[in-house]
Design a protein around this nucleic acid. Structure first.
Lengths: 229, 229
DNA sequence: GTCCTTATGTCGTGTCGGTGACAGAAGGCG
DNA sequence: CGCCTTCTGTCACCGACACGACATAAGGAC
């Protein structure tokens, strides 16, 4: 059962937008909703994947763990985003770990329910295919970057993307609440390497730094740095 | 229009398997088929993507180019495999380049035709979703490896996968026709680094090397090398 | 057979980024 | 307020891998 807020959110999320009211009602009836504490794990790499999630409030980090404890961050999901589709599509194990990084409300739809929804509403299937296409596009892009770009370029690129998605725009730049440690985890490099590069850019006035905050001041300059030096 | 061989292949490919004869007939009627010379480019990174391809005979390399000419190889497609789905799903530009690396026969289905097929045969949509799930799973795995594993481990892992998919099994190992240069392009590292590692393994009797051929002799040993040394 | 192309095997040399260590600064919390 | 944790900023060291160069070997074309 979902709250009103959850229901409102579902009908505005890309996957379910434009569905007839009756279908939305059916979804809301079978969907579950619960709160997660800050730091609580929604699911882990390797778990059997039997549900799709949508963020109502809060933030969820998608990461993929390493056996030795190292971890790389793949994405941060915000209200309106859905995650956990892969395991839903082929019924396999989770490829990533989802962790609430703020007190969060999540709506979940079980695999079998989603399956029957797909059969009744082909529109949802098309939308899901489009979404898969985008996600594949995203991961291929990351793969390409990882293989071809050096660390500074990857850092610049990722910084712009994160600023775009999660930053707060103001008169002199985009402010991003993110520790350098986290930024390093996104790139699979060390915090020190991130700091070194950010310091260089700070010296040129391209970025501003303070505890837990990165401000992109000269976006065009960073963009140039992103397309190889 | 497709040849008989093309039609036979379509009905055995994962995407179209199990469809009623009438549907297959409709597909065959709108599908195109043509030959590609060795080295001929099927489509390039950045092209508008308006068709899905299936390999009837030959081999097609999927790669993603770099502006400066460097190139990384993503996959090699063989008869029965389909490729070019991403651009089909969301109508965007090609994320990769497809090149025939042997004289090849390819069947292609245009986006609009495929779209109407999806509407008439929801089964195909489900199958496509499953396939997307697998492909996402594959790329996330590669991303994880790229960020967490060192070059020898990645080399071992990739070698096993390529041997599995394209190798020829015999009494004393799996024979893989692949130059070290190509192998390096799969991993995004240099030929020299590949050679150095292969030489080390050759010294231990784990692999055999000759011009254009790599023989995996001790699969368990390579498998151990793949899961970090 | 000879020539030519392509692939392999091996070196230095250089550099990017990882590792470990440590000091200072900024908040959080009692 | 003082204490403790977390984050930032820097440094020295080192190893892995890129780069460029070159010798050798294996086929293919003729």
């Amino acid at each position: 059962m979902t709250t009103l807020a959850g229901r409102m959110l579902l009908q505005h999320s890309p996957l379910f937008r434009g569905l007839p009211a009756a279908a939305l009602e059916r979804i809301a009836a079978v969907a579950g909703q619960r709160s997660y504490r800050n730091g609580e794990v929604v699911f882990s790499h390797g778990d059997p994947g039997d549900a799709l999630y949508a963020v109502v409030t809060g933030r969820v980090r998608i990461s993929t763990g390493a056996p030795d404890g190292r971890e790389i961050y793949l994405n941060i999901m915000e209200p309106g985003d859905t995650f956990g589709e892969i395991a839903l599509l082929d019924g396999g194990a989770r490829t990533a770990t989802a962790t609430a990084i703020a007190p969060s409300e999540l709506v979940s739809i079980r695999r079998d329910h989603f399956r029957s929804l797909l059969e009744q509403e082909p529109k949802v299937a098309f939308e899901l295919l489009r979404l898969c296409g985008q996600r594949l596009r995203w991961t291929s892009g990351l793969l390409e970057d990882a293989a071809l770009l050096d660390a500074p370029a990857r850092l610049a690129k990722r910084l712009l993307i994160l600023a775009e998605l999660h930053g707060k725009r103001s008169k002199d730049g985009v402010t991003l609440r993110l520790s350098q440690e986290e930024l390093a985890s996104f790139l699979g490099i060390t915090r020190q390497a991130v700091n070194q590069q950010l310091q260089a850019w700070k010296g040129k006035g391209w970025v501003g730094l303070s505890r837990g905050v990165i401000v992109v001041r000269d976006e065009p300059a960073i963009r140039r740095a992103a397309t190889q030096d």
